[in-house]
Design a protein around this nucleic acid. Structure first.
Lengths: 200, 200
DNA sequence: CGTCTGCTTGATGAGGCTCAAGATCAGTGG
DNA sequence: CCACTGATCTTGAGCCTCATCAAGCAGACG
């Protein structure tokens, strides 16, 4: 529980890198807690087979329960090339620090839950916006997309429907390939953010 | 799976009661944090109109962000007759205490997200099981149901579909009315828990 | 007693799931 | 350098579930 004093900005030797698709920790294993610096992580409840249970994006905390119980509840898998830093790293893990993580977790829940309502194309767009590092109105930003299988699990759609949604977005000019083509590895795309008034 | 099964019962003068449908706090207002003792609470993000953002059941913490920021992010509404107690109470809001709340929040996310995948009847069943205070295999338990409108928002279905799902469950003997009839007020029903092996 | 709110049920159509085939690409070994 | 394999993605056809629209009913409440 008690806290080692570590500077707030993760130094180069205090981070861990994971490739897209890499397992970060297994459910039930003795893991430790991390904060996501960049990338995205998928959490799964292991109930016979894996069931999508949550998402962590930069700033979020991973495996906080292991500090309390000594083991992780969820399987964590990198959706994109992901950088983690030990948590709690900075300052005292008390008061404001933990409260901030709690507040952030609630907001993450709200956005993840919202990824599973509405029309297919809108869900996929919302997911992409969650993965866009920066945020601005109407801008054309670069974004990495996880495999279709993961996008489907997160949005509660099928691979086919996600693929069709992305195709539609390309036809409409909302999305454009910008890096690798198809096949293994994370896709890099350009995505046009909707106007700030956020219609739907 | 669950962190602590039964939350400690607070003294009678340290609780607040809310009727079904009552507003607990408004988004953006200066609220305070509460722990749910019994009942259930719905959280909504206010984005023009209210969008379902989360659920709190006994043991969960409500409005933790107000301790940090001074105001609430979400609107909180009682889904059932609900009892709350101030949080953190006498205990210090540090260490294990906050970590427990964080771990619990992650587990709640997993279950709420699961309420929005799969067939309609299964979603409704899962929601009812989330509202059942006690848990046992194959038993016939008493449970209060929130208004259809809320069940629909939570499961990302429509009122009509939820109503049809409940009708089907009644025809199949999974659910039976046990208190008030239709009209205003929370419905009381008997619900047959599925066998512990939990076949989806 | 009339109105209002919440619940139920039916008819119909659309959106997404299922099944299936083909395309593209990374890695491997000849 | 190229064929082969396996994984991922794309696209099509048909069906099914659920959303939508609509009507009717039961209690609550003034």
């Amino acid at each position: 529980m008690e806290i080692s004093a570590v500077p707030p900005s993760p130094l180069a030797d205090q981070v861990r890198h994971h490739a897209s698709g890499a397992r970060i920790h297994e459910a039930g294993s003795a893991g430790s807690a991390w904060r996501v610096v960049s990338g995205a992580v998928r959490l799964d409840a292991i109930d016979g087979d894996a069931v999508f249970a949550g998402l962590a994006v930069p700033g979020d905390v991973l495996g906080a329960e292991s500090l309390l119980l000594g083991h992780c509840h969820f399987r964590a898998t990198a959706l994109l090339p992901t950088v983690l830093t030990p948590w709690p790293g900075a300052a005292p893990a008390q008061g404001t620090f933990l409260l901030g993580a709690l507040a952030r977790a609630e907001q993450r829940t709200a956005r993840v839950v919202a990824l599973r309502a509405g029309q297919a194309v809108d869900r996929v767009k919302r997911l992409i916006q969650l993965l866009v590092p920066e945020a601005g109105g109407g801008a054309l930003v670069q974004v990495m997309l996880p495999p279709l299988r993961d996008m489907a699990d997160i949005t509660a759609l099928t691979c086919e429907t996600v693929s069709r949604s992305l195709s539609l977005m390309r036809r409409q000019g909302t999305l454009a390939a910008a890096g690798q083509r198809r096949g293994r590895g994370t896709k890099i795309c350009r995505y046009r953010l909707p106007a700030t008034d956020a219609a739907a």
